[in-house]
Design a protein around this nucleic acid. Sequence first.
DNA 1: GTCATTGCAAATGGTTTGCATTGTA
DNA 2: TACAATGCAAACCATTTGCAATGAC
Lengths: 143, 143
Amino acid sequence: MGTAPTLDQLLDDLRGRGARVTTARRLVLAELVRQGAAHPSAEALAARLRRSHPELHLSTVYRTLEVLEELGMVARASFGDGAATYHLAGDRHHHAVCESCGAVIVLPDSALRPVVQRLAREHGFAAAPYHLTIPGRCASCRA
Amino acid sequence: MGTAPTLDQLLDDLRGRGARVTTARRLVLAELVRQGAAHPSAEALAARLRRSHPELHLSTVYRTLEVLEELGMVARASFGDGAATYHLAGDRHHHAVCESCGAVIVLPDSALRPVVQRLAREHGFAAAPYHLTIPGRCASCRA
DNA sequence: GTCATTGCAAATGGTTTGCATTGTA
DNA sequence: TACAATGCAAACCATTTGCAATGAC
């Protein structure tokens, strides 16, 4: 689990990869830093950012996230239903999502180790699972 | 891995749960039996079935699949992008997919047991993982 | 100045829904 | 007969795209 990067580091990273540093990209990255462990949707990000920058359009947020994902700086997690969510890459984890209430449990990457090892041992397969989503029912919905 | 059920067994199951046995449900279940290990989308199922039953509407296929899923007879797997896929519940398995050559390794459900148990123990979460897809690199592409 | 990026509006694709009709039980 | 299930068209939602205007380098 790496340390959370600062906005400046992220912008340097962007520049270093030859991408232009624009207002939209600065805003989206700043908001993702601010949201920390949350997993906002593109719509949620746009809504939040439009409070201070009304001209920021939803499609720009989508395009920005697309670019950041291609550069490996942002990860997209699509839960079965509804909108996809986005977070800064670097902190590998997985999600268990409750099918009835949508509650999300964050699982460290190490939880997948047994499966990864089994694949390596039995098939010589080097698994690189990145944010898997495991469906099920959470404790309170099972009651 | 349980034996694949026959269409008649599935229809009995439907009846037994108090649901009406209609033409659409018969058709959809028959097609899912026929497709075996494939994972067709609602659209693919509808297209296939419309060849012999042109009046079968896509929305009916969706509603049918929804009912069958609620009854636990069909499982839906949403790969990140594109349409969701459906298959008969009961033959639980997962896939490891090579990112460079596309090779697919089938994993028995038991491979996920450690993660499932951990979720149950630590969070009271009843994981029901159907058809996870684990990315990585296969033995020959690693060479 | 050049070309990537944005704003905007309109299109897309998958899925859902309202309502009159049909068909199962 | 009664009520669930269907056909159809239209709505819906998240996401994408075309294009002219803007802004980063």
